[in-house]
Design a protein around this nucleic acid. Structure first.
Lengths: 138, 138
DNA sequence: CCTTTACCCTATATTTTTTATAGAGTTTGT
DNA sequence: ACAAACTCTATAAAAAATATAGGGTAAAGG
């Protein structure tokens, strides 16, 4: 399941996508629209900024704005950023790989093979669907 | 990510699958093989039993045994049992459906559509791969 | 029939992760 | 100078996952 953090991130990105005509959007506006705590959302937006998805402007009249074209923001990127690995096992994660502690060898692990398959199927969708696809529907 | 509970369940099922020649297997034997706490594993085996995957026998000479043919135990069943929903959002879960609280309407939700697609791709794999596939590899 | 073995069940404790909050900085426009 | 609004780090609260405890119940075997 996606964490609240990730869901909030998608909400915020959707809101920012819808308001691309204005220069900046206040944290407060997004927080109110979706009933998210201002401060919690702040951390999320900051992470999205560090990842190069959002830009921000300080001081009066400041706020956040989309720095990327929505079509260039795959959903997988957002999920990985806020939630971490997409794979179901650490030993098949592309971005957060770790060997399974209790596993003797990956070659001899039956689960490993299946989970690689699952990962690839999930990524086929999440790498190709972007923020633009989400904006379309709303 | 799969929880430890689910991973332990797969370990136990693998062990039981490998030892189908003997009538029963002790909790203790499985726990030692994989370094799992006896008591923690007990709860897991009990759930697998309630789900009709395992059988057990009390008293001296007792233990657990596979009641189903490994080919009739889809991986999705085990995951759902120990971990809950496979879907990434409650609003697209087939077995644990719940509406998203912060979501106004599913029809107008861009994420909803994509996550249905993800769910279906994952299930294509996990419903068709069974315990038998895992046993093959080990 | 009695003792031992081993599963059955429920409750509680511990640890980790997630979610939320607080408050002091820093930058910027007027 | 002042106020608006993001930046950053630390901490707290809540929830979930993991682990432990201990008595209950059934069955085998002598």
């Amino acid at each position: 399941m996606l964490s609240k953090k990730t869901k909030y991130a998608f909400h915020a990105l959707t809101y920012l996508g819808k308001h691309r005509d204005q220069k900046t959007v206040l944290i407060q506006d997004i927080a109110e629209e979706y009933g998210i705590s201002h401060k919690f959302l702040e951390n999320i937006l900051l992470e999205l900024k560090k990842a190069g998805i959002l830009g921000s402007k300080k001081g009066k009249g400041g706020g956040y704005y989309l720095i990327k074209d929505p079509i260039d923001v795959p959903l997988s990127k957002v999920i990985r950023l806020l939630d971490g690995p997409i794979a179901l096992l650490p030993c098949v994660s592309l971005n957060y790989y770790e060997p399974c502690i209790e596993c003797k060898s990956e070659a001899a692990c039956g689960l490993n093979k299946v989970m690689i398959q699952v990962r690839d199927e999930v990524l086929k969708v999440l790498e190709n669907k972007t923020l633009a696809d989400i904006l379309d529907k709303e």
